[in-house]
């Protein structure tokens, strides 16, 4: 049976018909062609599919598409505003926080959520926050630095 849903994704309203069992990540990738959100596992472990649902980071493979009905979703495609990179995007580029780029969207979405609740995280707090996101390329070293870069930049901007 198909269910009608209406979701605001990156500021744009979308209507769609989905199966009850369809995952949000599938809806984003297959229905909306927003392929920046990646699927890296089948056990909700790797965090590659992390997005923001009503302002909070969630793994979009643990949310059914029907649960997102009426919600606001932000994906990696919605991070930059008016062509200007979000500080976290800038941080990942400046500090070489990505290599193959596959985990990167999820990492950034998790990081943005962290910086919302903790504007000045310590290295330990950053590493702790990244526990649900796997990266196989960087050894996490430069991801930590990228998030520190973004924290610094965002604090500078708001100060």
């Amino acid at each position: 049976m198909k269910n009608k849903i209406s979701v605001n994704v990156n500021g744009k309203q979308y209507e769609g018909e989905v199966e009850g069992r369809e995952l949000l990540v599938n809806f984003l990738r297959e229905h909306l062609s927003l392929t920046g959100t990646h699927i890296g596992c089948d056990t909700s472990s790797c965090g590659a599919c992390t997005i923001h649902l009503n302002g909070h980071a969630v793994k979009s493979c643990t949310v059914l598409a029907v649960q997102a009905d009426g919600a606001e979703v932000t994906t990696v495609e919605g991070l930059a505003t008016n062509g200007e990179l979000h500080p976290i995007q800038e941080g990942f580029k400046e500090e070489h926080g990505l290599q193959c780029g596959f985990c990167t969207p999820g990492m950034m979405m998790t990081a943005v959520d962290l910086l919302k609740s903790n504007a000045n995280p310590t290295e330990h707090e950053i590493r702790d926050a990244l526990e649900g996101n796997f990266c196989r390329c960087t050894g996490y070293h430069n991801i930590v630095k990228s998030i520190q870069y973004a924290a610094k930049k965002m604090n500078g901007a708001t100060a």
């Binding site: 965090g47 980071a57 969630v58 793994k59 949310v63 649960q67 649900g132």
Partner: peptide, 9 residues
């Protein structure tokens, strides 16, 4: 840290 609603889990 990164999770969704309980139902979704």
């Amino acid at each position: 840290k990164v999770t969704s609603t309980n139902a979704a889990t």
